[in-house]
């Protein structure tokens, strides 16, 4: 029973990881490419990590929860990376399929 659950989780995780990268390779402009790795890959690796947590909880005595830490970390950092990449791309005026919004002044704010 647990075996089937683990298999489903691992397979789902691997498929989503693959689709995320497929989006990265297949889509036309940078901003649409941003979506695949941010969402699909993150959920894929999340599934794999949950499978790992269940697997080690059963195999060894006691609950193994440190995989949750990586999952949390990934879910917090993936949107931050995507936001920064999008910001950098807008700053560099990367080619886009959609009309890019008006850029105001690009002067960086004072550090602090």
């Amino acid at each position: 029973m647990i075996d089937i659950l683990l298999s489903i989780l691992i397979l789902t995780g691997a498929i989503f990881t693959f689709i995320g990268s497929l989006g990265l390779a297949r889509l036309q402009d940078f901003y649409t490419r941003l979506h695949g790795p941010t969402k699909a890959t993150t959920l894929g690796v999340g599934c794999l990590l949950i499978a790992s947590a269940i697997y080690f909880s059963i195999r060894e005595d006691g609950i193994s929860l440190h995989e949750v830490l990586v999952t949390l970390f990934l879910f917090i950092t993936a949107p931050v990376s995507a936001h920064l990449l999008g910001k950098a791309a807008l700053h560099l005026k990367v080619k886009s399929l959609a009309a890019t919004p008006e850029q105001e002044n690009d002067t960086p704010p004072s550090p602090g």
Partner: peptide, 19 residues
């Protein structure tokens, strides 16, 4: 994730991206 996966598998021609 399912939504994005579906759109990626459908292919780039059908997308209507916007800001």
């Amino acid at each position: 994730s399912f939504h994005v996966a579906y759109l990626i598998l459908l292919g780039p021609a059908r997308l209507r991206p916007a800001f």
